[in-house]
């Protein structure tokens, strides 16, 4: 396998010195949404980025597509450096599906015009073949061609999300980034959109970066998982390894917090106490230590590195202390 996307020490930050800051000669408050993050995406694989709100997963997606500026770090796509900007043909090769199809589709355009716009901008097909290609795209996302003449307002949530996917596929991308693409859908609709994504991925040989907070969905769809906490990756490996043998205490807490069918909650005990600290004031040492059940002195002082053992990386001082497998939730 070759790497399609290589991210090295990526930092994305928001906020710079305001006028007031400059007058008062204050230091600007800077929020590091993505902090020194490295990640590799192999050709053809589906990588999930999971984490809770504010962990920076969406910012990471937006930085890869070029919707937010990158403060520092390297982003290589198919061997090209795209951190500083990219040409139209590279832009075409990375497409995104957004969370809320209701607000990410232009309400005044018919589905046909939405798709045709992409086909024209990227000169995907000759002008006389646009209609034909639109019909093919509808077929690809399993919608009846009659929908081409509808505006988004008339479509259901599931149909709109399929149009969102068709619009991304119109550009024939190599890398598809789905940012919480099924989070807003009802479970029966979600199931069919997940099935569609899986089929498309194999049929078109897409590489998929799937951003989600829903661990059950991720386990169903993705080959590899990266867990993010406060802007950085704290654990990364293939899906079964992360779910079956989590080495980071945050991953373990996340997994045992997921409600499961058939498991009744009988006590008030929570998997994880407290809430994540503000990304404006990151704790010293390990950024997870204030909530960590196994935090020790070293965790307050020294930030752990992302350490790998057999293609399983975890950012915890104690990740590899014992090599016994840890299972979550399998016990009665």
């Amino acid at each position: 396998m070759t790497a399609l996307l290589e991210i090295e020490k990526l930092t994305v930050q928001f906020g710079s010195a305001t006028l007031t800051d400059r007058i008062l000669r204050r230091r600007a408050r800077v929020l590091r949404a993505v902090d020194d993050l490295s990640l590799t995406l192999e050709q053809g694989e589906a990588l999930a980025v999971v984490g809770e709100s504010g962990c920076g997963k969406s910012t990471l997606a937006r930085a890869i597509v070029g919707l937010v500026p990158i403060a520092s770090g390297r982003v290589h796509f198919d061997g090209m450096d795209i951190a500083g900007g990219r040409d139209r043909s590279t832009r075409r090769r990375i497409q995104m599906v957004f969370q809320d199809p209701g607000s990410s589709l232009n309400p005044s355009l018919t589905v046909r015009n939405t798709l045709a716009e992409v086909l024209k901008v990227h000169s995907m097909v000759p002008a006389d073949r646009i209609g034909e290609r639109c019909a093919e795209l509808m077929d690809l996302v399993e919608l009846p061609p009659a929908i081409l003449d509808a505006r988004p307002q008339r479509l259901s949530g599931g149909q709109k999300q399929r149009i969102g996917i068709a619009r991304a596929l119109a550009a024939e991308p190599d890398l598809l980034i789905a940012d919480e693409a099924v989070a807003a859908l009802d479970v029966s609709v979600q199931a069919s959109v997940l099935n569609l994504l899986r089929q498309l991925r194999h049929r078109l040989g897409l590489t998929l970066l799937f951003i989600s907070h829903d661990l059950a969905v991720v386990r169903n769809l993705c080959d590899r998982v990266a867990v993010m906490y406060l802007g950085t990756v704290v654990e990364e490996s293939n899906t079964e390894e992360v779910f079956g043998n989590p080495r980071h205490p945050y991953t373990r807490a996340l997994l045992s917090a997921v409600p499961r069918i058939g498991v009744k909650k009988t006590s008030g005990e929570a998997a994880l106490a407290g809430e994540p600290p503000s990304p404006l004031a990151l704790p010293l040492g390990c950024r997870f230590h204030p909530r960590c059940p196994i935090a020790a002195e070293v965790c307050r002082i020294e930030e752990p590195l992302l350490e790998s053992r057999q293609q399983h990386a975890a950012r915890c001082h104690f990740a590899w202390e014992s090599t016994e497998p840890i299972t979550i939730g399998e016990q009665p």
Binding site: S156, G158, V187, S188, V189, Q190, A191, S192, L194, N195, R198, D214, L215, A216, V217, R219, N220, L221, C222, T239, E240, F243, G244, V258, R260, I261, G329
Partner: peptide
């Protein structure tokens, strides 16, 4: 039954999920 079958389970393996036809 259909609703329960459509929920991605927290279990290994990622086959196709059962869907409910229509809306």
């Amino acid at each position: 039954a259909a609703l329960l079958a459509a929920v991605p389970r927290f279990e290994p393996g990622g086959g196709d999920l059962t869907t409910i036809g229509g809306s």
